[in-house]
Design a protein around this nucleic acid. Structure first.
Length: 596
RNA sequence: GGGGACGUAGUUCAGUUCUGGUUAGAACGCCGGCCUGUCACGCCGGAGGUCGCGGGUUCGAGUCCCGUCGUCCCCGCCA
């Protein structure tokens, strides 16, 4: 039988492929979709017909309708077809309990073939998975698969939940420019050349930060936007060059006002979409304490294993690697791993190299045996000190204590990474558990050794803690910010702050950041001017929407929650962007290329 | 910018080091045939390869060496 492509004519779909049930038996229906799989038994042909809602088995029976049966013989996977027929009960014992539609099947009276297909580069309904570059190039085929489709449905529902919640709280969604101004500070900008003003460039926004603050000056009071942002930096599994933020800003609020809204929003969508009860208020931990206890500014608090400073207990040991560090102003920090005494030498070596990767000198360990410490440290640390260490860490027989010495920030970070790695290895967290925490009062500034100047930890519009303002001039490093990050399961999913709303303080910060008067005027003049016209106190936050969705659906990579994501080299595998452009197109923009 | 893993049929992989050597295999998919209750249908037969690309060593390279491109993970970077 040769292939003729039919026209759809006046056929109308009566049902989707996922919804017919036993109750529908006897109905005449018209279904349209893709051939998911065919099972040709000769005089009987079964097809699983697929659309985004699911599968329905359709049957071509020579005795029932000879014409459609003959035509069905040439069908292949992924062809697009339309069938008319009757919903019938499957023969007793032939039901498929794995399908929601498994009690019924469609006896086909008439078949239309609407499209054929090339042999797909990978099997859409395949057990064998193709490599990611193939799947990314043919993304429209991968999107036919239920797993990825489900993620995007969830993404839609979460966005909708957020919009509904914020709307009910009196927020207005306002769009802000994509073609805007390059500003110093922060990530590398994506630039867009201007045709009309040759030699000048727009920048795509890293976030709508300044515009949303202008909306506060404009009296909008409560603004939000689910908005694309662009940062030209290297990618990671949790980082895309264009990504989506849930961006909020509120007037006449302090930290609590912002956190309140965000907590309400999270409780709402987690309950509505996952049926998961998140309790409020979320715990808050100051940055300094987070580093101290968890060695991270995004602590995963789903498990304990807190870090403890044991410097005072080991000061009098005879172990030079410890005493020397302590004398030089460093610390010895330790963490207890419950039942860790069974770790092999190889595992300990792996952990040790992990620690040295994060810049710390080395790792020392002590296994708590029935007869005392089994440890390279045993002979250097007296019995009193040993039991004091055990007590501080709550360690008991069968446990493993890990020590790292060094300057506080180095030791903290090293042990913090170790803590996460061990948490993974020992499966200390269960799937489907969600734990929020606010990390507050980050340092306002940090010193950049490369640039030889202070840079903003959050951004230059973040307000310092009022009580720390007097320190700005003399000890800027010690000034804490009115900032807060939202952390979910050890991942940063948002960050915000109360902003500076007076011009004097804003200028002072720019001065400390080493930005010259002219530069400030040129880059931020429009914003500073706005601050002169009655800017209200305000604050806000930006949440990483892709990351939030990824965590909620359990995706490993942001690529799994974005319809058409970028590859690690920031290319679009589908469209093959970026690409070269004509010389004419360049000259129209007043551009020429340095590299051929 | 740096470190690492991978690249062989349409797809996923084996073969690659120790040890270079006949016609590069398997599964799924694809093509043809048979089959009236399948649902990962079954059975019979068949086609399909620039071993990422370029160079080198060698009588001989999928295999060894150098370079390069691509995909992914990590560090730097990401206010």
């Amino acid at each position: 039988m040769k292939l003729d492509i039919d026209t759809i004519g006046d056929w109308k779909r009566t049902n989707d492929c996922g919804s017919l049930r036993r109750d529908d038996i006897g109905r005449e229906v018209a279904l349209l979709g893709w051939v998911n799989r065919r099972r040709d038994l000769g005089k009987l042909i079964f097809i699983d017909l697929r659309d985004r809602s699911g599968l329905t088995q359709i049957v071509f029976d020579e005795e029932f309708d000879k014409v459609s049966h003959e035509k069905a013989g040439i069908l292949r996977n992924e062809w697009v077809i339309a069938v008319k027929g009757e919903v019938t009960a499957r023969l007793p014992g032939q039901e498929n309990p794995d399908l929601p539609t498994g009690d019924i099947e469609i006896k086909v009276r008439e078949l239309k073939i609407l499209n054929e297909t090339e042999v797909p580069p990978f099997q859409v309904d395949g057990k064998i998975d193709a490599s990611e570059n193939v799947r990314l190039k043919y993304r429209y085929l991968e999107l036919r698969r239920p797993a990825l489709f489900h993620n995007l449905v969830m993404r839609h529902k979460i966005a909708l939940g957020i919009r509904n919640f914020l709307n009910s709280e009196g927020f207005l969604e306002v769009e802000t420019p994509f073609l805007t101004k390059s500003t110093p500070e922060g990530a590398r900008d994506y630039l867009v050349p201007s045709r009309i003003t040759k030699g000048s460039f727009y920048a795509l926004p890293q976030s709508p930060q300044l515009f949303k603050q202008l909306l506060m000056v404009a009296g909008f009071d409560r603004y939000f936007q689910i908005v694309r942002c662009f940062r030209d930096e290297d990618l990671r599994a949790d980082r895309q060059p264009e990504f989506t933020q849930v961006d909020l800003e509120l007037s006449f609020v302090d930290e609590d006002g912002v956190m309140d809204v965000v907590e309400g929003m999270m409780v709402g969508i987690f309950s509505e979409i996952l049926g998961y009860p998140v309790s409020r208020p979320f715990p808050r931990i100051e940055y300094g304490k987070a580093m101290d206890l968890y060695g991270s500014d995004k602590p995963d608090i789903r498990f304990g294993m807190e870090l403890r400073d044991v410097s005072d207990l080991l000061r009098s040991s005879t172990f030079r690697a410890f005493t020397k560090v302590i004398e030089e102003g460093g610390v010895v920090k330790a963490v207890n791993i419950r039942k860790g005494a069974s770790f092999s030498r190889k595992e300990l070596d792996e952990l040790s190299s992990l620690v040295s990767d994060s810049g710390a000198k080395g790792l020392f360990w002590a296994k708590l045996r029935r007869d005392g410490w089994q440890s390279p440290l045993a002979k250097f640390v007296g019995p009193d000190s040993r039991s004091a260490v055990e007590e501080r860490l709550g360690a008991r027989e069968g446990d493993l204590i890990i020590f790292v010495s060094g300057m506080a920030h180095v030791a903290n970070e090293a042990l913090g990474q170790l803590r996460i790695e061990i948490g993974k290895r020992l499966h200390l967290v269960t799937d489907g558990e969600y734990s929020f925490v606010w990390v507050t009062r980050f340092p306002l500034l940090e010193y950049d050794e490369d640039e030889k100047r202070y840079v903003a930890v959050h951004h230059p519009f973040t307000a310092p803690l009022e009580e720390d303002i007097p320190l700005l001039a003399e000890r800027p490093k010690q000034v804490r910010a009115r900032s807060y990050d939202l952390v979910l399961n050890g991942e940063e999913i948002g960050g915000g702050s109360v902003r500076i709303h007076t011009i004097g303080l804003q200028n002072q910060i720019f001065r400390i950041l080493g930005l010259g008067k002219e530069e400030v005027k040129e880059k931020f003049g429009f914003f500073l001017e706005a601050l002169r016209y009655g800017a209200p106190p305000h604050g806000g936050i930006a949440l990483g929407f892709d990351r939030l969705v990824a965590i909620m659906v359990g995706a490993e990579s942001l690529r799994d929650v974005i319809a058409f994501p970028k590859t690690q080299r920031a290319t679009c595998a589908v469209a093959d962007a970026p690409s070269r452009v004509d010389r004419d197109q360049l000259s129209e923009l007043g551009l020429s290329l340095l590299c051929p």
